[in-house]
Amino acid sequence: MTYKVTEEGDASTVFLDGEIDMDKTEGAKEVIFPLIDAGKNVNLNLSNVQYMDSSGISVLIESHQKALEKGTKLIVKDVSKSVLKVIMMAKLEQILNLE
């Protein structure tokens, strides 16, 4: 997994790519959590993530809940078809902010 972060106003956009599994979740959290802790709204762009397992889904849930606690917002954007299928299997499409 590689990542890129862009800033625009009070929002940060995190672009992740590759396959997000148990081996990659700590790296994803290390990028996302400090932005939320800093009070940023975070756009998580998953257009180049082709695979996500339950560990990756846990990162989405944890990030979403952390943002709620901090009074910011996590928006999950441009989800690939394969990852959307997993999000829907977890019945999270109404919970997460998907765009």
Partner: peptide
């Protein structure tokens, strides 16, 4: 499944 929190989904999948 409606108790949304991190973890516990692998076996469900």
């Amino acid at each position: 499944i409606d108790d949304v929190k991190p973890g516990g989904l692998g076996t469900f999948f």
